[in-house]
Design a protein around this nucleic acid. Structure first.
Lengths: 191, 191
DNA sequence: TTTAATCTACCTACTATTAGGTAGGCACTC
DNA sequence: GAGTGCCTACCTAATAGTAGGTAGATTAAA
């Protein structure tokens, strides 16, 4: 049980740093300290591991988003929290969102993983759309267009900025990329 | 010479669809019709091939950007052309910008390729910054912040939107992502 | 309550396949 | 005859995955 979790942790870090093709069972074996073959006991194939990975990640991620929504802050505050998740990932070890990492090398993925990936994007856009709809009411975000367009743009922006910043190993490039969006967010509670 | 170009063409398509680790010399061999070993005559190592790839790509890309700049259109028109380059790549066969593809699997890249990658990003941001500076003068783009921030955001946005759209195999997701930016662009010449 | 059956979590040792890369040779052109 | 562009035939290392076995805990039956 503990081993399974260690494997998931180790694999997640690897994928988010180097992509799904960027680690092997042999790598995991060394890091965890069990034999390569034993990993197959927990995850019969690498595709199974990938599926478990994105499943766990999505669960955690959307639980966090739910917390943010339930925190009751303004749309602007919630967007700031959202952006912070992506910034933290970079700072914590040059990691990108698991889904950015998977999107990138998409051809080596099973259809099951691809489905989960699309679900992740769809749910992210849905969450962000809600936020931008709330923004239209509380007025805490300026320069809004259609909520769904603002939402898609925000998702593309943070993921793109993450990719840029990691390539240059420089979080400040992420900050530079999201600065214009942050500038649209009201700094004080609006009602 | 012809073979060399065929190899570059084939490799570029492969990288932009599946990433740098997503193709092998064996794949190229099959596609081009020469033996795997013969490819090493043209590109001694895969890293050499990668370098040649990004070098050629950057040359072509920035020549296009120079043409756009010299076209004399408004900042809005030039931004529209810029976005169109990224949209076309998706439409032409689910390809992303070579540099998006390379950024993703950055750990399998040589330092030379990584340098070129960073140069590409830096030059892109420089070009876009110029456009946004012009926008501040000709007024053809609304809602502008600092030029360099708008520029970085634009780059992150188109690259992120490309990634999103390709994962779902749906160009309309790209359009949805860049819609808000396009909405800021004046549709008629401004002076 | 001992005994037998089964399950868990690992092991060693292996397979087939693919990866990038090399050595040396052969035809052809300048 | 030197260089170009390709070939066959190989190499080593790594890949995911498999076969078969084992120590130890758990469960079921006598």
């Amino acid at each position: 049980m503990d081993t399974r979790i260690s494997l998931l942790d180790s694999a997640e870090r690897a994928v988010r740093q180097r992509g799904f093709d960027g680690f092997s069972y042999a790598d995991l074996s060394k890091e965890i300290g069990i034999r390569k073959a034993s990993i197959h006991y927990h995850f019969a194939t690498k595709a199974d591991l990938g599926f478990a990975l994105i499943e766990r990640y999505a669960e955690r991620f959307f639980a966090t988003l739910a917390d943010i929504r339930n925190s009751g802050g303004s749309a602007a505050e919630q967007l700031r929290s959202y952006i912070q998740i992506y910034r933290d990932a970079l700072a914590e070890g040059e990691q990108v969102c698991l889904c950015v990492a998977l999107s990138a090398g998409r051809d080596s993925l099973s259809t099951e993983v691809l489905d989960q990936l699309n679900r992740f994007h769809a749910e992210s856009i849905a969450w962000l759309t809600e936020v931008f709809e709330r923004a239209a009411q509380d007025g805490s975000v300026s320069g809004c267009a259609l909520p769904i367009e603002d939402a898609t743009a925000a998702l593309a922006l943070v993921e793109g900025a993450q990719l840029l910043a990691r390539a240059r190993k420089d979080v400040s490039l992420f900050n530079q990329g999201v600065a214009a969006l942050i500038a649209r967010l009201a700094t004080h509670p609006v009602h």
